[in-house]
Design a protein around this nucleic acid. Sequence first.
DNA 1: CGATCCGGCGCC
DNA 2: AAAGGGCGCCGGATCG
Length: 554
Amino acid sequence: MAGERGGGELRPLDAAGRPVGPTETVSDLAAAMAAREATEHPRWVWATAGAIYPTLLRAGVRVERCHDVELTEALLLGHAGRWGEPRSLAAAWGRLTGGPVPADPPPRAAAPPGHGQGALFDTLPGPPGPGIEALTQVYADQLARVATTAHPGRFRLLVAAESAGALIAVEMGAAGLPWRAEVHDEILAELLGEPSPVGGPPRRLAELASRIADAFGVRHLHADSPAELLKAFARAGVELPSTRAWVLRGVDHPAVPLLLEYKELYRIWTAHGWSWREQWVRDGRFQSEYVPGGVVSGRWATRGGGALQIPKVIRRAVVADPGWRLVVADAGQLEPRVLAAVSGDARLAAAGGAGDLYAALARDSFGGDRPRAKVALLGAMYGQTGGAAVPALAVLKRSYPTAFGYVEAAARTGEAGGLVRSWLGRTCPPGSVGLGDPDEGPADPDAAADRQSPRARAARSRGRFTRNFVIQATAAEWASTLLATLRTELAGTDAELVFFQHDEVVAHCPAEQAEAVAAAVRRAGERATALLFGDTPVRFPLDLSIVDCYADAA
DNA sequence: CGATCCGGCGCC
DNA sequence: AAAGGGCGCCGGATCG
């Protein structure tokens, strides 16, 4: 329990969360924790890693394990169908004791490196938080609540993985992703031309903008304004529902290819251009902030810099330090493999034992047509109802009824207003009642889908969400279990985890350790599979690359 | 004027 | 191949 000025309180607990010794007040919490870490390897129970671990890391203290009360509270509240209630230690304490339940503080804004980073550790001495007694009792209560879940063993794994994720997120944020500013500059110059000295669009964008205006026969056109574009197209006799790229691709007009290029480059300029680099890259590292559990499905989110949306062309700027390597691991076909494992469909599981699940599926049931097999499986997991996927979906339904039934059941539950859970017990949020606004809806009244009532459309949308949730959330669990295991595996090496994106992890390590790190990633993948699914025939192969540059990863 | 919504697109 | 699930972030448009 952290106090002011680096002091704090410590209390030893047993496995059930009962105190087994007196509370000790220390003046240097980091030092006291470091000492115990070295000798006892405890699981630290604290309100939340984000509030204390950055300070500890800065003091040179790494901890092996923790129990994150806030993240656990969120998981338990969700499981109990109480999504959205405050999750802080103080709130949990209030619910436990019948005291006040404070609202959670609003999420902090992203803090670019070197600007207000202090918010992470120089916390203003606000009102004193709940004391160590509250922490102890809430922890014991959480353990008891976990034991009452449908699958306590799985939920314990979920809590452990989520808590480990909280540690990794802080460490990864502190490490940063190796980033070569001069390479980034070269990419930008190549794509965009020279930056404008006055801060306007760079040369190639300006040229494209004027050519687009020419193509419409006007003097000026705001090419990044959808409204203006729609008007311009309308004047040219082309009525469009939107200016999305895939809509434009079907339009025959001389401005279209220019616009598509403009959109692509404009995005890079605004989202990952020079000013982005100045804001987010410091001392050769892109420093974002990772938020485990930031997405309802359990995927991580990030705050700042759009770390999970780095365009592929920009990844050339991600380069290992001299003498170091990047070990990049990507779990291929993760979501269909998850479906194979959780559904208990023996035939699909057998296909999941292959290195290429789609190919095996195609051989088994689609006459060798791999693209068709892929469309069918993706369509089943995302809830596709139209287009070319429909006949393929029928094949899937006939040949893999158990797997098909699994996602269908999740969809039906969602459509009926029910909740679904991941394999380890993460629960989807409830749908907002009355979501379907009768006024809204696509303009075209002839389209069959729009003849449905808004209520029915909302229900179908909800069904697609719950259908996907059971897969996406379980995939996130597999990935975070891998990550937690990998972190333990790497404890004795110089490797640092520097990036994690849903089903992909990047470690940065001395070249001579790269093979060992790659082997550790493989072991971590096998361990994650065994921890989640036990003795399953489904394999979860990893595409592994040892590279200098992220863009060179397979 | 700032706050918020929306269209659009990057990633998985 | 089709346009479906999850996000964060940008600029423009609009609201108060």
